[in-house]
Simulated assay, not measured.
Amino acid sequence: MKILIGLFILLLNQFVFTQSLPVELTYFYGEVVEGEVVLYWGTATELNNYGFFIERSLNDSSTFNEVGFVMGHGTSFSPKDYSFRDTSANINEVYYYRLKQMDNDGGIKYSWIIRVPEATKVDFASQKTNGIKMGIYPNPSNESTNIILNVDKPSDVSVILYDSNGRVVRKIFKGKLFSAGKFFVNLSTLSSGNYFINLIVGKNNFTRKLIHLK
């Protein structure tokens, strides 16, 4: 009886394992950093992952061409982070990117499509503190802005938007961040003026100024 139960559990585990997605993508975004387009993405788990082909489309999202490749981690059950610098991109253009993930057996899966807009410049190098990188774009902003965070280790994170009088305008995020995160902030209901984004990561606390123009 014990042998039959053990065999059943083994078969069940194999079924669950084979039904798992080859690669679980957790984030994918792009920025213009120091005059070049840089793409960032991460995975929660990987199963027989050969790697990622980076595909780019100019001014629309209908025709894509391959511009690079990044090797995968094969099989992994821990979060992995990736990046790719597109040195051939013209930052005065609007680009669309997607990832073509390939398994070791040749299977293919596409990511969602992201847009890297014209004149989106985030200088992460000047905004790095204790392994924490924070970028805000666009800044000055109009209807909305985006907050990009990168941490070098899993951390408890809090992101809060304040007005110039120190009043809380919006609690943007509170939780655990494992590697990177992107937060969209709708500013359409706010008056023009100076605002401040306060970031707390573990014991680190710092603030960035956001200019909102209507």
Rank of each mutant, 00 (worst) to 15 (best):
G193R: 09
I197D: 04
A180V: 09
N186G: 10
N205W: 01
G202C: 05
F183K: 05
S179I: 05
K176R: 11
F196T: 08
N198P: 02
D163G: 05
N165P: 00
G166F: 07
S164N: 12
G202E: 03
S188T: 09
I172E: 03
N186R: 06
L187G: 06
F178I: 12
R208K: 10
F178E: 11
T189H: 06
K171C: 10
G166C: 10
T207Y: 00
D163Q: 04
V169T: 14
N205S: 13
F196N: 07
R167G: 14
G166D: 11
N186W: 06
G181P: 03
L161C: 06
S188R: 09
S191Q: 13
V168A: 08
L187D: 08
T189D: 14
R208I: 13
V201F: 00
K182A: 14
Y162E: 12
V159I: 15
R167A: 15
F178K: 04
T207V: 14
I172V: 07
V185Y: 01
S179R: 07
A180D: 04
N165A: 15
F184W: 04
V168G: 07
L161F: 03
G181V: 11
L187T: 07
V169I: 15
I172K: 01
F183S: 07
N186E: 15
K176T: 12
G175W: 01
L187W: 03
R167L: 15
K174P: 00
K176W: 02
N165V: 09
I160K: 07
R208T: 11
K182R: 12
F206M: 07
R167W: 10
F196S: 08
G166Y: 07
A180S: 13
K171W: 01
L177F: 02
I197S: 05
R170P: 04
F206P: 00
G193K: 07
V201D: 01
L161W: 01
R167M: 15
G181H: 01
V169H: 03
T207D: 05
G166L: 12
S188K: 12
F196H: 08
K182S: 13
I197W: 00
L177N: 04
N194E: 15
G193T: 08
S188M: 13
A180Y: 00
K174H: 07
I172F: 00
D163P: 02
G193Y: 06
I200T: 05
T207K: 06
F184A: 14
S188W: 02
N165H: 09
K171Q: 14
A180M: 10
I172C: 03
F196Q: 06
F173D: 06
I200S: 02
K171T: 13
